[in-house]
Design a protein around this nucleic acid. Structure first.
Lengths: 118, 118
DNA sequence: TCCTTAGTTCAAAAGTTATTGAACAATTGG
DNA sequence: CCAATTGTTCAATAACTTTTGAACTAAGGA
């Protein structure tokens, strides 16, 4: 089962920028980039926002074409759409991730609690 | 006379992205980039929005640190803050401008009328 | 089957941003 | 001085976005 995603050519620059221009979503993207290749479920982001609110932000990221979300059981596996973003907007994702990596003001995933599992 | 601008280190990534995530402002930035070095006055952008609305969008760009605005007579001379943006977020401005350059959906400066003056 | 875990949906409330018009200020040219 | 040009401010409104809680669905394990 796959949720609705834009095709690569439907991805819009102003929408991507607006979606990344929110600290919570930028923190999500930074974390996805830091674990690139490893699909994350929504629970990984619970120190950024409530479950309901995360559902909202993750939908925004998916609808903008920034992330890909795959439903597996009751989970959603979330990955960056690096290939499509690089094709559409070369260099953009990398420069955003690099800049976000330096940003002490952004909220952090994994500062709150349990690094029980790896 | 200079209007209030953030210092280079006060420029915030999410704020810059949010400010660029608006089609009117992105069109302004694309036009500034296409004439880089040549300071533009507000009137150059009148085919994007009303005078009042432009004042609002140009203030947003200035307050975010994306543009520099210098008051000269009754005019405002507007330039991109490329040096500061490149220092803070290397590669970001270039990738945004390149992507915006391809974007047929963005509004255009100079499509409406008078190329009377150069 | 029943319970838990994982996440969505919905409607409401709160907050923010964009757009408008009318009135204003400041500079410049006649 | 007067009028035109250039742009700002203000208050109102419209339009969107974010956040919330309660209710819900769907899968998986005991």
């Amino acid at each position: 089962m796959t949720l609705p995603h834009p095709t690569a050519d439907q991805i819009s620059l102003p929408i991507v920028l607006a979606v990344l221009g929110d600290p919570t979503r930028l923190a999500i993207v930074r974390f996805l980039a830091s674990k690139e290749g490893v699909p994350m479920n929504c629970g990984k982001f619970l120190d950024l926002a409530s479950k309901t609110n995360l559902s909202y932000h993750l939908a925004k990221l998916r609808e903008a074409g920034v992330t890909r979300t795959e439903a597996v059981g009751t989970s959603r596996l979330i990955t960056l759409r690096r290939d499509d973003l690089d094709k559409r907007f070369p260099g953009l994702l990398d420069s955003v991730i690099a800049a976000a990596g330096e940003d002490k003001a952004l909220p952090m995933v994994g500062t709150a609690d349990s690094e029980i599992d790896a």
